[in-house]
Each structure stands twice: as structure tokens, then as C-alpha cells.
Design a protein around this nucleic acid. Structure first.
Length: 482
RNA sequence: GUCCCUUUCGUCUAGUGGUUAGGACAAUGCUUUUUCACAGCAUAAACACGGGUUCAAUUCCCGUAAGGGAUACCA
């Protein structure tokens, strides 16, 4: 009996970890890249990149009915937006079906697997009966020990001859030691009756062939790890280090649904979040490094490890996401910020900015980036350089442009005409005018703001005047003149 | 049904056999301010419950409850 060993034990971080790290992200292309998948990818990326290892991509497209090239495209696009770069070409699991079958046949030849001729109807019937009686629904194939001479000439599946005694323990980096009694694990199907490999087989073969050293994935796979380990053992292959991370839940604590959070990452891009902020927020969800909340990629790569990963599922909190993104926008380099904004606009299908507007926006970035949580807010705040004369004030701004205010602005205009065009001089001129007319600065600044930007949320009026220049400032004031 | 996992402020989390249980987001109030925002200060806010073990339990053990996951010829 090849599987007579009574205990299968996976390994912990072993001295093997001195070898180069190889991680992988293995999405199935049945839809967009959702936020949970994105975080799994991020963790794998962080772990590999922080250790000079490789981060590979494998598309698990063996489910032909549900897999689409569009979905693969969307996933790659999502990862690219998030800034998670992978090594080499993505591997198609489907294309490796021959190799998977080869391994299954090897197991068959070595007696670690067997042909099972039970039909699905028979199995279903068995399970229903077992459930009705409250007994274990684990299917025990009658063919496990059948004499090959008795095999009928019918379609069959290949099943693993799994150990029935003893236990299987996964030394998980996040969950700790998790133990299954082997009698809880049935003889899983390796090859379907049409000869195609099952996921369980394909994952193990691919991870092995790709040289994956650390498998970091959602804890919905924890139970799979136990079964997969039996395959590793049957093939006498090195077992990777496993880390099963808790899933992400929606804000209500329920499983993610379309209503809250289970959006494609491209939706997050369209909502105007900065990719760096997204990475930071996602990394912080379920992982921590002391009290650090805001950090760079370089820090995350250096700090990230299994120790900091929590065991309980985390909820999505858009407020915090916004806050973190705002901090990243504020601290971003202007050139990178500009190109990210351009990408954002194209993602939401907005008119691309002219070169002229782009440089105007670039000049305004230092003024608008500190208070903006999303690119949408940043752009809105930048209206004073992006809009065209004559500015149509929005509702709130219009309130600051009643006849009285416009009269005041008309009187103020000559003082600005004569002022030298520096921030200090302008501020002095406006303050002096306010004082002379017994006005509070705010009384004056609000209409001025409305005239210059047509908005109420803008940078300082003096900063705006510097950015748009004397001529434009005076022209905008002339536009609202009585 | 069976198996596995989880549980610290509303949320993300730090943390420890003896702490005033810390931080962040959100909330509230105040300060600053030419608006929004930013910033600063302050307030409120948590160890799921029940048993043990212990001089001492949020921390260790056992239950209970609640949540989640797995139980496929899906991935």
C-alpha cells in the first residue's frame, strides 16, 4: 500500500525558504477581478516582491463553459491598474490538460489511483440516501479494490486512492495546524469520465511544475489543501508552504455581493480611487504591521509577512478607503498623479484633456491634491483651470454672486488691476479693500471665488489668481460685472 | 447533517497571565481658516456569553451562541 503512512503533514516555513520564493495568483476567468481576488493577488505580490521572488499568474480556465477571454482580459487589466506586475506570461491551465492527465495516469500505474465506474446517478442516489439517514455522505467507491479483470467496458473516472486511516494535517502559516481525520476525506476524482482533469489535480500539478513555493489564497481553499496534500504525497512531491487568508466581507458583514463591494477593480478605478491608496488599504485589510496605517509600496514589501495576517474576515470600509486614497493623492508625485488622472478620465469615458488643459491642471495640482480623496474630487476642485469662460456658477456659487456681491467685485477690480501679481500683494490688496469697506475677508472671498471658479469648493482665491494669471482673473471678474 | 475556521470600540486593527486595553477610519464638539477640504485638540466608543485553570484571565482550557467556509465528474 503506497499510502500506508498514517499521517500526512505539510510543512511550515522550512529551511527551504532560503530558496527563491515563487508565488502565484490563479484566478478563474469567469468574471471580473473582484476585490477579494485583488487582495489575494496583492498579498502574493507583496510576499514575492519583498523577498526578491517571482510572482506568477495562472489562468484557471478549465471550466470551458464559464471561462471567457473577455474575463481574462478584464483580470489582467485590473491587475495592471492596481500596479501588480507578474513575471513571465500568464499560464493557461486548460492548455496543460495533457500534462495533468499524464500525472493521473502515472498515479494509476503506481496504484495511487484507480478507475471508478460508478455513474453520477448512482453516487447522487447514495448521497441522498445517506443524508436522509443522517449518515456520512462521503462516497466510497466499490471499485477501489475491485479486480481489474472485473472492469466493464464503460466510461470511468480516475479517483485518488486516498488513505482511509490516520490524519492529514496542514501546517498553515495563518490558520496554524489544521487537522482532518482521513476518513473525512473521500477519494476525489482526478480525471473526469471524458478524460479531462479536475481542478484539484490541475492545481497541484501546475503549482508543482511552476515551482510554486508559497501558496497564498483565500481560506475557502483550506479544506482543499488537505486533499491536495494527498496528491502531493502520492506523487512524492515537495509540498508548498500554505497560507490561507480570511475572506473579505461587505460592509454589512455578509458575503460580498454586487450591492456592496464585489465590484470589478475597474469599478474602483472609475470611482476615482488612486491605485497606490487601493494597495495600501487592501494590504491593511486583514494584515497589519503594528499601528502603521499609511505606507508606501516599498514599506509594504519590506514589512509584509505571514505573522501580520489576521485570522478573521474583514469588512470593506469605503470611508477608510477614501481616507487612505486621499493621503496617497496628497503625497503623490505630480507627474505620476497627472498621468493617473488622465487614465482615470479615459476609464470613465470622459473627454481627454487638451495639452493646454493638462498643463493648466499640472500647475494647479499642488493646490488641489491635499484635500481630495478621489480623482473626481480633485477634478472638481480643479474646475477653475479646467472650465472655460464665461463660467456658469453652480447652485451654491450662484448664491455668492447676487447683485450686491457683484457690485463689490466690480469695485474691487481696479485694486487688482494695479496690484503686483504675487500672492502676498494680492492678499494685501484684497485685505486692504475689505478693511476700507468695512467687510470681512470672507464676505469678499466668497464672491471672488464664485467669480473665478464658478464653484464653492476651490483652493485659496489668491492661489487661484496666481495660477490663472492677471489677465484671466480680470476677464473672469469682468464676466460677472454688473 | 458532517468537517474546518473565526469572534477586542460602529469599522480596520495593536496588545498582554497583572495595562488608565493603544492606534486609525467614521461620529460628535472645539480651534484654525477666504469656502470645501486639510491640519490640530478634545469627547464618546470594545475584549460575544458561560464555565473552569490561576493569587490574578481580554490573554490559557472546555463548552454555548453567532458568523463564515468546505462538503461536486465547479474552480
Amino acid at each position: 500500500m503506497p499510502n500506508a503512512i498514517s499521517e500526512l503533514v505539510s510543512k511550515r516555513l522550512t529551511p527551504m525558504s532560503a530558496n527563491p520564493v515563487v508565488t502565484r495568483f490563479a484566478p478563474s476567468p469567469t468574471g471580473y477581478l473582484h476585490i477579494g481576488g485583488a487582495r489575494t493577488a496583492l498579498f502574493n505580490w507583496l510576499f514575492a516582491r519583498g523577498r526578491g521572488g517571482k510572482f506568477l499568474l495562472r489562468i484557471e480556465d478549465t471550466d470551458r463553459a464559464r471561462s471567457t477571454p473577455e474575463a481574462t482580459e478584464a483580470i489582467l487589466k485590473g491587475l495592471t491598474w492596481l500596479g501588480l506586475d507578474w513575471d513571465g506570461e500568464p499560464i493557461s491551465q486548460f492548455e496543460r490538460a495533457d500534462r495533468h492527465a499524464e500525472v493521473a495516469h502515472q498515479m494509476l500505474a503506481e496504484g495511487n489511483a484507480y478507475k471508478c465506474f460508478s455513474t453520477q446517478d448512482e453516487i447522487t442516489e447514495f448521497r441522498e440516501a445517506a443524508r436522509a439517514e443522517g449518515k456520512s455522505t462521503l462516497f466510497q467507491s466499490p471499485w477501489r479494490d475491485a479486480d481489474p479483470a472485473s472492469h466493464p467496458d464503460l466510461p470511468y473516472v480516475v479517483r485518488l486512492r486516498a488513505p482511509r486511516d490516520g490524519q492529514t494535517v496542514i501546517k498553515d502559516q495563518v490558520q496554524g495546524d489544521v487537522t482532518w481525520s482521513n476518513d473525512q476525506l473521500d477519494d476525489m476524482v482526478l480525471l473526469r469520465s471524458d478524460g479531462t482533469p479536475t481542478y484539484m489535480l490541475a492545481v497541484v500539478v501546475d503549482d508543482h511544475d511552476m515551482g510554486v513555493t508559497h501558496v497564498i489564497r483565500g481560506d475557502d481553499h483550506l479544506a482543499n489543501a488537505a486533499r491536495q496534500m494527498q496528491i502531493y504525497h502520492a506523487m512524492n512531491w515537495d509540498v508548498p508552504v500554505w497560507a490561507h487568508i480570511p475572506l473579505i466581507h461587505g460592509p454589512d458583514g455578509k458575503k460580498l455581493s454586487k450591492r456592496h463591494g464585489a465590484l470589478g477593480v475597474e469599478e474602483y478605478q472609475a470611482m476615482g480611487y488612486a491605485a497606490a491608496g487601493m494597495r495600501n488599504y487592501l494590504a491593511r485589510l486583514g494584515w497589519s504591521h503594528g499601528d502603521d496605517e499609511f505606507f508606501t509600496d516599498a514599506q509594504a514589501k519590506e514589512w509584509f509577512g505571514f505573522d501580520g495576517i489576521g485570522k478573521s474576515p474583514a469588512r470593506l470600509d469605503f470611508k477608510k478607503l477614501e481616507n487612505i486614497c486621499g493621503q496617497h493623492i496628497a503625497s503623490a508625485n505630480d507627474d505620476e498623479l497627472l498621468s493617473e488622472i488622465v487614465a482615470y478620465q479615459s476609464a470613465i469615458g470622459a473627454q481627454p484633456l487638451s495639452e493646454e488643459k493638462k498643463s493648466a491642471l499640472y500647475a494647479a495640482l499642488p493646490l488641489v491634491k491635499s484635500g481630495s480623496k478621489t480623482f473626481g474630487q480633485l477634478l472638481e476642485k480643479s474646475h477653475f483651470v479646467l472650465g472655460e469662460r464665461p463660467f456658469t456658477p453652480d447652485e451654491k456659487a450662484a448664491k455668492n454672486l447676487d447683485n450686491v456681491s457683484r457690485g463689490i467685485l466690480t469695485e474691487l477690480t481696479p485694486h487688482l488691476q494695479n496690484a503686483s501679481w504675487s500672492r502676498d500683494a494680492l492678499e494685501a490688496a484684497v485685505s486692504a479693500f475689505a478693511e476700507a469697506n468695512d467687510l470681512k475677508l470672507g464676505k469678499l472671498a466668497q464672491p471672488l471665488r464664485a467669480a473665478l471658479a464658478g464653484r464653492t469648493a476651490t483652493p485659496s482665491v489668491f492661489d487661484m489668481m496666481i495660477v490663472i494669471g492677471r489677465e484671466e482673473t480680470l476677464a473672469r471678474l469682468a464676466d460677472v460685472k454688473i
